[in-house]
Every structure is written in C-alpha cells, then in structure tokens.
C-alpha cells in the first residue's frame, strides 16, 4: 500500500460523509398543498415540520413528518393513495380519488430536484 492509497481511501470516505450531510432530500423549502374537491384546504411547509403529526382532510388521514408527507392506510377502499408512499420531492403527487383528496408537492428553490 502506498501513501497515495491511504489518501484515496480517506478522500472517498470524506466525500461520502460530505454527500451524506449535504445531499439531503429535504433541504429545499418543500410545500405540500392538500386539495379536497379541487379546493386547497391546507398548505404545509414540510421543511419546517419539526415533529410528526397526523391531519385529516376530506376523510383521509395524512401523516406529516419532517420533510415528507404520506396518506395513511385504511380510509378508503382502494388504497392507491397510501401505495404512493412518502412524498418528499417537489413535483410528487398522491391522490385519493374516493375522497377526492390530492396532495401536491411544490417548491425546491435551491434546485435540489432540478436534475443536471
């Protein structure tokens, strides 16, 4: 093993650590808008959510956590909304058609989701 090898290993670990710290998915101000019957009933700034909570909208129960939001299972027959899983990036949406409830994520001014 040459000295260069050790430097390389250290550099790779450092890069991994830096990426881990700074490439967080939730760094942008991501806004979740909840629509019921086409009307916006709630706006949540997901980046500012500090503790997890649940909220009701249009008969659905939404789970809100820091940086992400999800439909809870068991409030409609087809569960398509819950299958969509956690939403954390701008542009993601999930809809519960039986309850006419839609969650749309927008924002991310720092271009985290903008691609290359």
């Amino acid at each position: 093993m040459k000295t260069g090898d050790w430097i390389l290993i250290f550099a790779v670990l450092l890069a991994a650590a830096l990426l881990f710290l700074f490439a967080q998915p939730f760094s942008g101000a991501i806004k979740a808008t909840v629509f019921v019957n086409g009307r916006a009933v709630a706006e949540i700034d997901l980046a500012r959510v500090k503790t997890a909570y649940t909220m009701e909208a249009g008969g659905c129960v939404l789970q809100v956590e820091p940086g992400r939001i999800c439909f809870q299972r068991g409030h409609c027959p087809d569960q398509t909304c819950a299958e969509a899983g956690w939403l954390s990036r701008a542009g993601q949406t999930a809809a519960c058609l039986p309850n006419r409830t839609v969650v749309v994520l927008s924002g991310a001014p720092d271009g985290v989701t903008g691609g290359v």
């Binding site: 670990l13 991994a16 990426l19 490439a23 998915p25 985290v112 989701t113 903008g114 691609g115 290359v116």
Partner: peptide
C-alpha cells in the same frame, strides 16, 4: 432528471471502497 439519485452517493462510495 432528478437530483434524488445522488442520495445513493454515500452508500455507493462506501460500497466502491
């Protein structure tokens, strides 16, 4: 067209190592 794949970066780097 998403930056989200970079979230795999750290684990892939450690795996590469």
């Amino acid at each position: 067209q998403t930056g989200a794949v970079w979230l795999y970066g750290p684990i892939l780097l450690v795996f590469s190592l």
